[in-house]
């Protein structure tokens, strides 16, 4: 049992070390078509200096709608939960 624990510890440590060595260097992300597209075209298409805002509210607006709906559901459930509380 102890041997199994030590073996698991060593294997997991070497796994983490290998992952850390295989990381990409800082500031050099993997090349993808989408980020180049957003950097080159977001200011022209969405007319917004803040490219993050243009992604959140324009390109991925449905995601923001889901977040707002989640917040609405959370507030509704909290109001429902405390409805029976003594005044």
């Amino acid at each position: 049992m102890e041997l199994a624990k030590i073996a698991f510890f060593l294997i997991f440590t070497y796994f983490l070390l290998a992952c850390a060595l295989l990381l990409r260097p800082f500031g050099k992300p993997a090349v993808s078509d989408m980020d180049e597209y957003f950097i080159l075209n977001a200011q022209r298409e969405a007319a917004s200096n803040n490219v993050v805002a243009s992604i959140v509210f324009d390109y991925r607006g449905l995601d923001t709608l889901g977040e707002a709906t989640v917040l609405f559901a959370a507030v509704s459930s909290i109001v429902l939960l405390f409805r029976g509380a003594p005044k």
Binding site: Q43, A46, A47, S48, N49, N50, A53, S54, F57, D58
Partner: peptide, 22 residues
């Protein structure tokens, strides 16, 4: 209002529906 490409001082009257949605 349209926005010039690249770094610029930022104009408040831009971005279409994004400020309204904000």
């Amino acid at each position: 209002q349209a926005v010039p490409f690249g770094p610029n001082p930022g104009f408040i009257n831009t971005a279409g529906v994004i400020p309204l949605m904000n």
